[in-house]
Amino acid sequence: MTKRRVEPFVWLMFSGGGVVAAVFLPVLAFLFALAYPLGWLDPPDRDHLSAVVGNPLTILVLLGLFVLMLVHSAHRFRYTLYDGLQVKAKTTVAVLCYGAAAVGSVATVVVLVAAGFTS
């Protein structure tokens, strides 16, 4: 019987988040954080984006992406604090990092569902 540990599951989410961040985030960041706000490309109109965001499939996919990326960030930043800054309060760091990811995940559900209903 394999010992029950939480680390393998957190690591799986970290890895999944790493993959989706590597694949999805460059284009999303380029379009929505730079190209559209700075007018390099014409921003899509709100109604179209609202229709996209309101699609149940989009909601599910975005939920998966965002939660995985939040866990990925929390996990990586936790170890950056341990190794890079040699923070000794390890339990506090872990609680704060994963806690932030949990709060972010709840916020993700709220925002996605709210935006889905208004579309």
């Binding site: 019987m1 394999t2 540990r5 680390e7 393998p8 599951f9 799986l12």
Partner: peptide, 17 residues
């Protein structure tokens, strides 16, 4: 090894004893 540990953990969770 991490991947192996994760795979075994998922198996242990999903498959009956």
């Amino acid at each position: 090894y991490k991947l192996k540990a994760a795979r075994e953990s998922v198996k242990a969770l999903l498959l009956p004893r």
